[in-house]
Nucleic acid binder design. Structure first.
Lengths: 108, 108
DNA sequence: TTATTGCGTTACGTTATACTCACACAGATG
DNA sequence: CATCTGTGTGAGTATAACGTAACGCAATAA
């Protein structure tokens, strides 16, 4: 495996890892209907504004969202909505997991 | 935001986070052509077997891969190949990031 | 003008978790 | 037994997440 390929995996992993947190996932889900300000996001996810601001910074740094200043408020919006497609696949994984679990339990 | 929704975000985030590591991403990519044993995976990603085994455990626990014993070897395979679709979207994000970066630099 | 309030970000310190390595261990095979 | 395979453990390091508090900024009130 070449160094270039490793770097590429690192870059990709950073983007995916940015989405791999409950609060950040909730933010992504909340933004699917359009841009939102930090305080409304904080209300939705039920976390402190400072914490939400940091999570938004992670998503912004990864390139998943973009920001726009509107008066006092900073509005955030999804930049690449395809991340929403992650959800479908992930739900499929969870369903498979649940199916497997029930199958194992039925063998008792 | 209800407690149930939070739990669901946590479950989804765990699956996504399982994919959000360079080595684990390389493993997923390496498995796209079919099942592989631990030693070959370790060779491909260039990491110690014990480390790779741990990463495989994470992916297994998340439900992204499944395992099958074949003599001495433990074979791993993708259980939900849709995770490969993550790559396309992530590449799109990376391309957008690069485009943005060059645009910023051209303004100099 | 100054003071104040709301919004968002950043800094600091703490806690928790993740990653890696070296090594030891167990299972299967010849 | 000797060897190859994969997994588990313990220790060290690094990184991430969070709360609290402080700060800058814009808009409004006094």
């Amino acid at each position: 495996m070449e160094r270039e390929a490793k770097k590429l995996y690192k870059l990709k992993a950073d983007v995916i890892a940015a989405a791999g947190h409950p609060i950040r996932l909730a933010i992504i889900d909340f933004l699917k209907d359009g841009e939102q300000c930090v305080c409304d996001i904080a209300d939705y996810v039920g976390a402190k504004r400072s914490n939400v601001s940091r999570h938004l910074g992670v998503l912004l740094n990864a390139g998943i969202i973009s920001q726009r200043k509107d008066g006092l408020k900073m509005m955030y919006t999804l930049r690449t909505p395809c991340v929403l497609d992650f959800m479908k696949c992930v739900c499929g994984v969870l369903r498979e997991n649940a199916k497997e679990a029930t199958k194992v339990l039925q063998a008792l």
